[in-house]
Design a protein around this nucleic acid. Structure first.
Lengths: 333, 333
DNA sequence: TGGTACCATGCATACGTATGCATTAAACCA
DNA sequence: TGGTTTAATGCATACGTATGCATGGTACCA
């Protein structure tokens, strides 16, 4: 910038002012403005964002932590967030926690040492205390996906997946006519597993059906491989449910593949339903019956909610935004 | 840091020296070292990486640009790079170009304004000039995936996919006994399409087969949807090849799905082979015959090659590293 | 013509850190 | 005891930018 100033025959602050004309209402003569622009072009000058960040205390970056880059559910979300952020002149840095607690911790550590203007994340293992502490220390706006956080300023965008699961399981039992339904889930501390579990429970209760301990599994972690594991566990049992509701598509798909590898037919020997409607749901045979989440809308709401906070358009207590779910009847159940 | 210094009763530079003990050979008394550590713990102090970057001119970040987050081919690569980088105390920021030229340009722009210590990328549309210019301006080490770059310092990691394609097509023709083979490709300026095209050509030539214009398509862009488009084009024709080699799995899968949607059977009505061996290749029915690339090894080599450059262990002209390919015979061809 | 207002720009400084150099005190040697 | 080395620390500064304040100049008005 000093070189630009020298070439344009003005001072460094003047160059700064020309380049950030929007910021200050200060006036610059058209002549020097031109000289500066010419010099910038000539020298191919690009402002150093590191220095700018140090001075302004804002980085024009937002950090996004997803739980599993292999889960297609997140892909449209990533895309939309990148697009919206770009429109507002922010860069997005993406991190993948792989559902691992140490990775989540590392992410938080990274964004406190290297400040960003906002954070969007899927905190699976992070505690409320850790999040509180992060916010207290950095005052960074945070928006989360699909998880309720106690902190009074953390916005959340989610689907009402308890209700959606309830409706899906009810639909399996009443419309599709299954006499019983199993549940392929995750441990209690894996949001949003417990919500979907409650939806399942509600549907079972309403249908007057007992929850058979043999038919419910909690060994998953949202990955395809864990769906296979659950299927192997079922295969080792004597009794199966006629249909299994899996907490997400990836596990449903793993479950189906393992069943098929073992020589069974879906949905005749065992039916399977998923949640998310990722592209693979329409690749696998039979096509996966599932619940779609409007992920583009989800991404859009995440990004705009965060930017509203960052740019001061939203100051109050936390907002909870809901996105719609839609039953996608296909062939697997 | 000033607060830490005050609390520890020492000067700010002393705190800095204690925290970066590795850097300088300067000696600090054990007593003050302890006082500083205590103060750091008490104040929960975390160094500000922005300021540190400004001072040291290094950011401890490497930037990774992939071409399509929906292409599972990249997922293990991302994971391994994150892991290796972490071991060396670097953070990785991921960007997704979505094969779009403007996104690639934006990425380059972003990493010149906000310097990083190294770049790993899949430059599809970027010209040699743009890359030269970036390096000249920032002196940032660059490693690319699967593309030859003219710049004498840009390392490249790739598979010998021309040879692998040649062997795959030859295998289709000789071992599998197909009398002809089609090609589902991408335009000339989409690396690594042309290399795979040359492999196909070589196999056809060696087999003494003519390349039928009706059997070769170049309308793809590596996405599943573009595979469907190619299939629709084939469906509209009178003559088909008995087997099609697609430049990647995603296109092969799109091709198969569209064929199946139109009522045809794979591999009986038309056989399809892919390239990459992404997880979806083992989800689709029939399972996709394809060529596996050792993506974890690819990611590892990318990361270590880049870190070698960054940390000065490698100074010379560009290195070209090759990873192995492996034929994966399954059911689709 | 002198005073006031305002436009355009420069000067000085701060953001949080790392590091060359200077300084002090202690230790050692002759 | 005086001088020289060494260990431990502080002082001053720079990285590249943004901004409050001061300043010079021009135009306007009475």
């Amino acid at each position: 910038m000093r070189d630009v100033a020298r070439l344009a025959g003005v001072s460094q602050p003047t160059v700064s002012r020309v380049l950030n004309e929007t910021t200050t209402a200060i006036s610059i003569s058209e002549e020097t403005r031109q000289k500066v622009f010419d010099a910038v072009r000539e020298l191919q000058y690009r402002p150093n964002m590191t220095a700018r960040s140090l001075r302004t205390q804002e980085t024009k970056m937002i950090a996004l932590m997803i739980a599993d880059i292999s889960n297609s559910f997140y892909h449209p979300i990533v895309r939309v967030i990148q697009d919206v952020a770009r429109q507002h002149d922010y860069d997005v840095i993406i991190a993948d926690s792989d559902h691992r607690q140490d990775n989540e911790r590392h992410f938080i550590e990274a964004v406190t040492r290297r400040p960003v203007d906002g954070v969007i994340m899927v905190p699976i293992h992070l505690t409320d205390e850790e999040i509180d502490h992060f916010i207290a220390q950095t005052r960074t706006p945070v928006v989360v996906i699909g998880v309720q956080i106690k902190h009074p300023q953390v916005d959340v965008v989610w689907a009402d997946d308890e209700q959606a699961t309830y409706e899906a399981v009810r639909w399996l039992l009443t419309e599709r006519g299954y006499a019983q339904a199993g549940f392929v889930g995750v441990p209690d501390d894996f949001p949003p597993g417990p919500r979907r579990w409650r939806g399942y429970l509600r549907a079972m209760e309403e249908a007057g059906l007992p929850v058979e301990p043999d038919f419910v599994l909690f060994d998953g972690d949202f990955t395809l491989e864990s769906g296979r594991r659950c299927a192997r566990k079922v295969l080792a049992q004597e009794r199966w449910a006629p249909v299994y509701f899996a907490v997400n598509d990836l596990m449903a798909i793993g479950f189906i593949l393992e069943m098929q590898d073992a020589g069974y037919t879906v949905p005749d020997d065992v039916a399977v339903m998923g949640f998310d409607d990722i592209p693979e749901a329409s690749i696998i045979r039979p096509h996966l019956t599932t619940v779609a989440q409007l992920t583009r809308e989800l991404g859009d709401k995440l990004a705009t909610t965060l930017l509203d906070r960052i740019e001061g358009r939203s100051e109050g207590p936390k907002r909870v935004l809901e996105i719609a779910c839609k039953l996608m009847p296909r062939q697997s159940a």
